[in-house]
C-alpha cells in the first residue's frame, strides 16, 4: 500500500459518503444519474468476484464490502425509496448506458487480461468503470444548476482515479516494473473524461460562482 493508493481509496470512499449524505439529508437525488449508479454496482460486482476466494487484507475485504454495500444502497434509494425516487430527473438521465455495458463486455471478450471467466469479468469492470461517469456528466450538462454536494461528489469520484494513476506510476518504479496496459489506459481514459468538469469545477470554486457546465 502506498500513499497514492490510500489517498485514492479514501477519496473514492469520501465521494460515496458525500453522495449518500446528499440523498439522506436532502431526501433528494436531483441531478444524480441513476444510470451511472447502476453501472457502478455492476463494476463492483464484476470486479470483486474474488471477495470470498482470495484474501489480501482486512482493509481489502472491508473496502470491497463497503463499496458494494453503499453503491447498492444508493441504487435502492434512487429506485425504490418513496420520497427520493420522486426527485429523480428521469427525463434528463437519457444516456443509453446499455450500449456502454454491451460495448465494454465485447471489449473484455476481445481484449481480456486472461481468458477465464473471472479475468474477463474483471477486465469488463475496468473498461466499464472508465465510462461509467458518462451518463452523470451528460445529466450535469442538462441540469440548470448543480448543487454543491453533487459537484463535490463528481469531483471526488474523478480525483480518486487520478490518484490511482499516480499509484500505478509509483508501483511501476518501486515494485512491479511491468506495464499494466488494461487498468492504465482505462484509468487514463476515465480521468480524461473528467477533464472539462475539473476545469469548470475549479473555476467555480476560485470565482465563488455556481458550478455550470456548458451545454
Amino acid at each position: 500500500m502506498n500513499v497514492f493508493r490510500l489517498a485514492g481509496d479514501m477519496t473514492h470512499l469520501l465521494s460515496i459518503v458525500v453522495l449518500l449524505l446528499k440523498i439522506r439529508t436532502t431526501k433528494s437525488c436531483a441531478g444524480i444519474s441513476l444510470k451511472t449508479q447502476e453501472l457502478y454496482v455492476l463494476v463492483f460486482l464484476t470486479r470483486y468476484l474474488d471477495l470470498f476466494t482470495r484474501y489480501f487484507s482486512v482493509y481489502n475485504v472491508l473496502m470491497k464490502l463497503i463499496f458494494i454495500g453503499t453503491s447498492v444502497a444508493i441504487f435502492w434509494y434512487m429506485r425504490y425509496h418513496k420520497v427520493v425516487k420522486q426527485t429523480y430527473s428521469k427525463d434528463l438521465d437519457s444516456f443509453r448506458h446499455y450500449h456502454l455495458i454491451l460495448g465494454c463486455f465485447l471489449m473484455a471478450l476481445l481484449i481480456p487480461f486472461d481468458f477465464s471467466v473471472t479475468e474477463v469479468l474483471w477486465t469488463f469492470s475496468i473498461y466499464l468503470e472508465a465510462v461509467a461517469i458518462l451518463p452523470q456528466l451528460v445529466l450535469l450538462q442538462k441540469s440548470r444548476n448543480i448543487d454543491n454536494l453533487t459537484g463535490n461528489y463528481v469531483f471526488l469520484l474523478g480525483a480518486y482515479r487520478a490518484l490511482y494513476l499516480l499509484n500505478w506510476i509509483y508501483r511501476f518504479f518501486t515494485e512491479i516494473h511491468k506495464i499494466r496496459w488494461i487498468p492504465w489506459i482505462s484509468g487514463l481514459v476515465q480521468t480524461a473524461l473528467y477533464a472539462d468538469f475539473f476545469y469548470y469545477y475549479i473555476q467555480s470554486w476560485r470565482k465563488h460562482e455556481e458550478l455550470k457546465l456548458p451545454a
Partner: peptide
C-alpha cells in the same frame, strides 16, 4: 492463468 494485475487493489 496469471491473476490479473494489481488484484490487491480496489
Amino acid at each position: 492463468g496469471p491473476s490479473s494485475p494489481s488484484k490487491d487493489e480496489l
